[in-house]
Simulated assay, not measured.
Amino acid sequence: MEQKPVYVFAKWQVKEGELDTVLNLLTEVTQKSTAEEGNLFYNIHQSNTEPNTLILAEAYVDEAAVATHRASAHFQDVVIGKVVPLLAERKVILSTRLDLG
Rank of each mutant, 00 (worst) to 15 (best):
A64K: 10
F41K: 04
H74M: 07
V22I: 02
H74N: 07
A64Q: 13
N52M: 02
T27A: 06
D77H: 14
Q3R: 15
L26K: 09
A10W: 02
T96L: 10
H45W: 10
L100A: 14
Y60K: 09
E58I: 07
T30H: 04
G17P: 02
T30K: 01
L26I: 11
N39A: 09
K91F: 09
I93T: 15
H45N: 03
A64I: 03
A67C: 11
K91I: 09
A65I: 00
F9Q: 15
V29M: 01
T27R: 13
A35E: 01
V22C: 08
K4H: 14
V78C: 11
A59I: 01
S47Q: 03
Q31W: 01
A73E: 15
K15I: 02
V61P: 05
I44N: 05
L40E: 00
V14N: 04
T49K: 04
V78T: 10
G38M: 05
T53Y: 06
Q31K: 05
L98K: 07
Q76H: 10
L94G: 11
R70V: 12
G17I: 01
E50P: 02
A88K: 04
E28N: 01
A71F: 09
L100W: 12
V84S: 08
R90F: 13
L94Y: 13
T27W: 06
I93V: 15
T68G: 13
F9W: 15
E18M: 04
I55A: 06
E16F: 00
S33W: 06
A59Q: 06
V84F: 11
S72I: 04
A71N: 13
V8C: 15
V92G: 08
N52Y: 03
Q76Y: 09
H74G: 09
S47I: 04
L94T: 10
T21Y: 05
T68Q: 15
I80W: 08
D99I: 12
D20L: 09
L26T: 06
V14I: 07
A88L: 10
N39S: 12
E89M: 00
